[in-house]
Amino acid sequence: MTLTLTVPPGAKVRVRITNENGETTEIEVEPGETVTITLPAGSTVRVEVEVVDPDGRKRTETFTLKP
Rank of each mutant, 00 (worst) to 15 (best):
F63S: 15
V49D: 00
P40K: 07
T6M: 12
K12P: 02
L3C: 13
R14Y: 07
R14L: 05
L3M: 04
E48P: 00
P40W: 14
T4Y: 14
T18I: 15
V49Q: 00
T4N: 05
T24V: 05
K58C: 05
E61F: 15
E20A: 05
R59G: 00
R57H: 04
G32Q: 10
G32C: 10
K66M: 15
A41P: 06
V35D: 02
L65V: 13
L39C: 13
S43A: 13
T34C: 15
E26G: 06
K58W: 01
E20H: 09
V45G: 05
E30Q: 06
R14G: 11
E61G: 02
D55V: 01
S43R: 14
D55F: 04
K58L: 03
N21I: 07
R59H: 13
K66P: 15
F63K: 15
L5H: 02
R46L: 12
V13D: 02
E30H: 11
E33A: 10
G56F: 00
A41C: 15
G42D: 11
V47E: 00
T64V: 14
V7H: 06
E30K: 12
T4W: 14
P40S: 13
T64K: 01
R16P: 01
S43C: 13
N21W: 08
R16D: 04
G42I: 11
P67S: 12
L3W: 11
L3E: 02
A41Y: 13
V51K: 01
T24P: 08
E20L: 07
T18P: 08
R57M: 02
L39A: 13
P40N: 10
E26W: 06
L5T: 07
A11T: 03
I37N: 15
E33K: 12
E61S: 06
E28P: 11
K58G: 00
T64E: 15
P8D: 11
V51C: 06
A41H: 09
P54H: 04
E48F: 02
T34L: 13
T6G: 12
G42Y: 09
I37H: 12
G10C: 13
P54A: 10
V7P: 01
E23L: 05
G22F: 06
G56A: 00
K12C: 13
E20Q: 06
V13T: 11
R57L: 02
G10M: 09
V35W: 11
G56E: 00
T2M: 10
E50R: 01
V52G: 01
D55H: 02
V45Q: 05
L3K: 06
P40A: 08
T38I: 06
V7Q: 02
K58N: 01
N21D: 10
T25A: 05
E28F: 03
P31S: 07
T60Q: 01
T38N: 09
G42T: 14
V15N: 00
P31D: 09
E61L: 15
G42H: 11
D55R: 01
E33P: 10
I17Y: 14
E33C: 12
R46K: 08
A11D: 03
E30Y: 05
T36N: 06
G32R: 12
V35G: 03
I17L: 10
P40Y: 13
L3V: 08
N19E: 11
L39F: 12
T18Q: 11
G42P: 07
I27W: 11
R16Y: 04
T4F: 13
T25I: 09
V7C: 08
V45T: 07
A11E: 01
V15F: 03
R59E: 01
T36L: 13
T2A: 06
T24C: 12
A41W: 13
N19D: 05
E30M: 05
V13S: 04
M1N: 06
T6W: 14
E50G: 00
T60D: 00
T36Y: 13
L65G: 00
T38V: 07
E26T: 05
P8L: 12
P31C: 14
V29G: 03
L5N: 02
T60F: 09
G56C: 00
T2C: 15
E48T: 06
V47F: 02
T6N: 10
E23N: 09
L3N: 03
L3G: 05
T64L: 13
L3Y: 06
V29F: 11
R16C: 04
M1R: 03
I37S: 13
T64F: 15
K12Y: 05
K12I: 05
T6V: 10
G42K: 07
E33I: 07
T6S: 09
V13K: 01
V52I: 09
S43L: 10
T64S: 01
T18E: 11
V51P: 00
R46G: 02
V45Y: 12
T25H: 03
D55E: 02
T4R: 04
V51S: 02
G22E: 08
E26L: 04
T18L: 07
G22R: 08
T34M: 11
R16K: 06
T18H: 07
V35H: 14
A41N: 08
G32K: 12
K58D: 00
G56S: 00
N19G: 10
V13L: 01
V51E: 00
V35S: 08
T44K: 02
G10F: 03
L39D: 04
K58P: 00
P9L: 04
V35E: 03
L65M: 12
P67C: 15
A41F: 11
E23F: 10
D53K: 00
K66E: 15
V51F: 11
K58T: 09
N21M: 07
K58I: 12
A11S: 06
V15I: 05
D55C: 15
E28M: 04
T2W: 15
E61I: 15
I37M: 06
E48W: 02
I27R: 11
V52K: 02
P9T: 07
T34A: 11
L5D: 02
V51A: 01
P9Y: 05
E50W: 01
G42W: 13
P40M: 13
T62V: 13
P9C: 09
E48G: 01
K66G: 15
T44D: 04
L39S: 08
T25N: 04
P31Q: 07
P54I: 04
I37W: 13
V35M: 06
V45I: 07
E30S: 06
E33N: 08
A11N: 02
G22L: 07
T34E: 07
P67N: 14
T38C: 14
T25L: 13
T34I: 12
T4G: 08
T38A: 10
V45L: 10
G56L: 00
E33D: 10
E50K: 01
V7A: 00
E48C: 03
T24E: 06
S43W: 10
E30F: 07
T44M: 10
D53C: 15
N19C: 13
G56R: 00
A41S: 10
V7S: 01
L5A: 06
V45M: 04
T38W: 14
D55N: 03
L65I: 14
G32H: 12
L3T: 05
G32S: 13
K58Q: 01
K58F: 01
T2F: 12
V51H: 02
E30N: 07
V35A: 05
N21T: 08
E28Y: 03
T36D: 08
K66Q: 14
D55A: 02
P54Q: 08
E48A: 03
V47M: 03
D55P: 00
